[in-house]
Design a binder for these strands. Structure first.
Lengths: 232, 232
DNA sequence: AATCGCTTCAAACAGACGTTTGCCACGATT
DNA sequence: AATCGTGGCAAACGTCTGTTTGAAGCGATT
């Protein structure tokens, strides 16, 4: 009946049962959803006994909540927002912000199962999501609203800024969430070449800048050096 | 072993077992997901025997696929795209398109459980989704690309048009999919007043028009009569 | 009246699920 | 050396799952 995180009972490395279960559970929950994921599969993948889940987390539900929080924190730490020196152009900040968001979601390197898990949560919020929104998403959202405020130079109200921010996030979100369907709507060769995190970040940023009047409209011939594309 | 849709064996009204099962299944699958929804609950809600599902649909999987298709068709029929007389301004068409899409997703009147079901499918496509994308989504997507093509007057390539189209759809999608989280990020009084299908349609349309240079940038003072807001 | 096909039903089926149990191994403490 | 608590394990528990079964009900046809 010893619940997790009890005492300072030596928890040095990262490959102990508890961590291994969290990792395996995150992947399983992300792939199959809460109900379809089975404790047996998770424990098999983690290389522990079936009883370990109940031993370390109490029950499946609490394992799930811990997995969601663990996954989000891990992903944010993997792909953090850059720190901008004072005076950085807001257009640059916006591009960085969007690129970071897309990088987190679409992820180079390892497939970001963490984000698939988050998608499920966002789609159908549980207690885990409410906690996450308050602690982590809200401040990140405020950063974006701040950048957009700089860009609009006071011409937009806070409410309007929030709407634009949601538009920006919505696009990033969509590429991740509905990637499968997008792949059915556009030619596959276009996907490979245009639907990379970098290309999409350029597009979303440009789209927002143009809408705010901070860049010429799409389709206007602009020399490459004037584009808001910033090397990272 | 008689499978559904056999002969012309009198299927007049809409409250027969098959239809009742489809309806109840749609709601259950939308609310709980495929795995968590149980055949017993569905049959209880539909007022039929447990064996009816296997009698009419073979198994749970095929019931699910039929439910998804049924739900999508029903929702599209409930909220159809308007027919535009030749010469309709493309800005007007865009607004109508976005408004229709949002209306379908956010839905006035009854809560659109159909759309929650679609969201699940889009997030994790199954055979049902592939079929749906080919038959129904692709032509609708083409309509939007066409409208954007008119608006950009040939200044954008097909690939760029598709990206803009995805941006437009992505925003609509996000309001639906992540509505719960959005509610945690913006004040609730703002939600009620600004996050209605009409207001959002205005915003998304305006955002797109501004980005394409077909309307002044956001934040520019424009007299109300010049706004692309069209009464419906 | 008897027969047929279609529909409905209660009951049972085998399997998978989350969870619990009791026992063993082992390092630290007494 | 004996004791203790922790961590891990195989096996079992009861429940719930999707699905099947065989028998009835019932209107139309023969």
């Amino acid at each position: 009946m010893v619940l997790a995180e009890s005492a300072a009972s030596a928890r040095p490395t990262g490959d102990e049962p508890r961590s291994r279960i969290l990792m395996a559970a995150g992947k399983e929950f992300a792939e199959r959803g809460f109900e379809a994921a089975t404790v047996r599969e998770i424990c098999l993948a983690a290389g522990v006994n079936v009883a370990a889940v109940n031993y370390y987390f109490g029950d499946k539900q609490r394992l799930y909540i811990e997995s969601v929080k663990h996954a989000h924190q891990a992903r944010v730490r993997q792909v953090p927002l850059p720190e901008w020196p004072q005076g950085t152009a807001p257009a640059r900040k916006l591009h960085d912000y969007v690129a970071t968001m897309l990088e987190r979601m679409l992820g180079l390197g390892q497939s970001p199962w963490q984000m698939r898990l988050m998608m499920r949560e966002v789609l159908q919020p549980t207690a885990a999501c409410r906690e996450l929104a308050q602690d982590y998403m809200r401040p990140q959202f405020a950063v974006l609203v701040g950048i957009l405020g700089e860009l609009s130079a006071g011409r937009l109200s806070e409410a309007e800024l929030r709407r634009v921010a949601i538009s920006v996030i919505g696009q990033c979100f969509f590429y991740r969430a509905a990637g499968g369907v997008v792949g059915m709507l556009v030619p596959s060769e276009e996907i490979e070449v245009l639907h990379t995190p970098q290309e999409l970040a350029d597009h979303v940023t440009r789209y927002a800048l143009a809408a705010l009047g901070a860049a010429p409209p799409l389709g206007t011939a602009t020399p490459a050096h004037a584009r808001p594309r910033v090397k990272r």
